[in-house]
């Protein structure tokens, strides 16, 4: 198959991937991403671009691995990659929770210190308003 005869679907996908790659290169040059992460990102989307332009490539690899179709190979690869992404999000969520705790602790300590010093203006009121909106 001539890779230069693209159907509209491939054309749109390639444009998207080109944008993602450009963003990755920019992030790498500007130092927004860690070098390793940026290179992984570029590698991932380069492989994606190859698969879009030349779908038979995935079939070749699939056949080599003993998987029936190229589409199945892509599907099988997507599961661990997405799982990893969710795990990374979970780790980040944990870190955010931790930071919230440290912040809440800091505020509680400040209020407690002021109240213990007998500073009526700055200590917690007799009945501080509970932040109901967060529960």
């Amino acid at each position: 198959m001539n890779p230069w005869q693209l159907n509209p679907f491939q054309f749109v996908l390639l444009l998207l991937i080109a944008g993602l790659l450009a963003g990755g290169i920019l992030a790498l040059l500007k130092g927004w991403l860690r070098r390793r992460d940026a290179i992984l990102w570029l590698l991932f989307w380069t492989v994606g671009a190859v698969a879009v332009v030349w779908p038979d490539a995935t079939s070749l690899i699939a056949a080599f691995l003993g998987i029936g179709r190229g589409a199945d190979l892509v599907f099988y690869c997507a599961i661990p990659i997405l799982s990893f992404g969710i795990w990374m999000l979970y780790i980040r969520l944990r870190r955010v929770r931790r930071e919230i705790t440290l912040l809440v602790r800091h505020v509680a300590m400040l209020e407690g210190e002021l109240a213990a010093r007998g500073d009526p203006a700055s200590g917690p009121a007799a009945s501080p308003p509970a932040d109901q909106s967060t529960r």
Binding site: I100, V104, R105, M109, E111, G112, P124
Partner: peptide, 26 residues
């Protein structure tokens, strides 16, 4: 007189650490 308030519920472990920090500071 020593009543600290977590503005959000953070769990018993967090509350303990807050109380211990405060006690040490006192």
């Amino acid at each position: 007189p020593y009543v600290l308030r977590h503005a959000l519920n953070r769990g018993q472990g967090a509350a303990l650490q807050t109380g211990v920090d405060f006690a040490l500071r006192r």
